[in-house]
Simulated assay, not measured.
Amino acid sequence: MALVEAAMAAHQGKALIFGNIRYAPKDDSTVKAAMHVSYEKYQELGLAEYGTAHVMQFWREYHLTKFEGWAYENEARLAINAPPDEQCFVPFGQALRHVLIGEGAAAEEIAEIERLAAAHGVQVSGVRWRNGMPVRVPTKLLPR
């Protein structure tokens, strides 16, 4: 919750979306409905009004839904509604507790991440894939 609180403080007045991802099957009717554009309603309301209404109706599907093949990630997501040209930095401060580094990281990158994390009291681990599942390992076990 510290990350959500930091985002709220940094971006007061903007809509924030936060929640656990719902993993849907590819034939999910709600996901299909979110991808359907009613040409008649679009013609009646115009692009801006129709687009706003459609996104308001299906915001969960657009921001908090992924297909079930990604369920192993057990992901939560934070989104900030801001104009496309506006940078939205969130000073995460104490919200960052652990960094996971994948197998593709170079030795120099791993060393720099470990250095920065240690300076802020953040733990660092590697992630390797075993039998199709991610497993946390010490960074020294990552291929370099």
Rank of each mutant, 00 (worst) to 15 (best):
124 V>G: 02
3 L>Q: 02
59 W>H: 12
119 A>L: 14
28 D>A: 08
36 H>L: 10
133 M>I: 11
143 P>T: 06
24 A>K: 14
31 V>R: 15
30 T>H: 14
134 P>E: 03
5 E>F: 03
13 G>Y: 11
41 K>E: 15
97 R>A: 11
25 P>V: 07
93 G>I: 04
122 V>H: 02
81 N>K: 13
52 T>G: 10
143 P>V: 05
108 E>L: 12
2 A>Y: 00
40 E>C: 00
21 I>Y: 04
134 P>T: 05
6 A>T: 01
110 I>T: 12
99 V>S: 06
110 I>M: 03
73 E>N: 02
64 L>I: 08
65 T>N: 07
106 A>S: 12
100 L>V: 10
9 A>G: 08
75 E>N: 02
70 W>S: 09
68 E>Y: 04
143 P>G: 07
116 L>T: 03
128 R>L: 15
50 Y>V: 06
133 M>Q: 15
25 P>H: 04
15 A>R: 15
6 A>G: 04
78 L>R: 00
101 I>L: 09
8 M>Y: 08
103 E>D: 10
124 V>K: 02
119 A>Y: 04
103 E>Y: 06
125 S>C: 09
116 L>S: 06
60 R>P: 09
111 A>M: 07
74 N>E: 12
98 H>F: 08
34 A>N: 06
13 G>S: 07
10 A>L: 02
96 L>W: 07
104 G>T: 14
135 V>T: 09
94 Q>G: 13
131 N>M: 10
88 C>D: 00
46 G>P: 07
61 E>S: 13
69 G>N: 14
36 H>K: 13
128 R>V: 15
13 G>K: 09
61 E>P: 07
113 I>Q: 03
97 R>C: 10
129 W>R: 10
102 G>N: 07
106 A>H: 10
134 P>L: 07
140 K>R: 13
134 P>G: 03
22 R>M: 07
29 S>P: 15
108 E>W: 10
132 G>A: 03
93 G>K: 08
19 G>P: 10
12 Q>I: 05
131 N>I: 01
16 L>H: 09
72 Y>S: 02
37 V>F: 10
59 W>G: 01
104 G>V: 11
7 A>G: 02
12 Q>N: 02
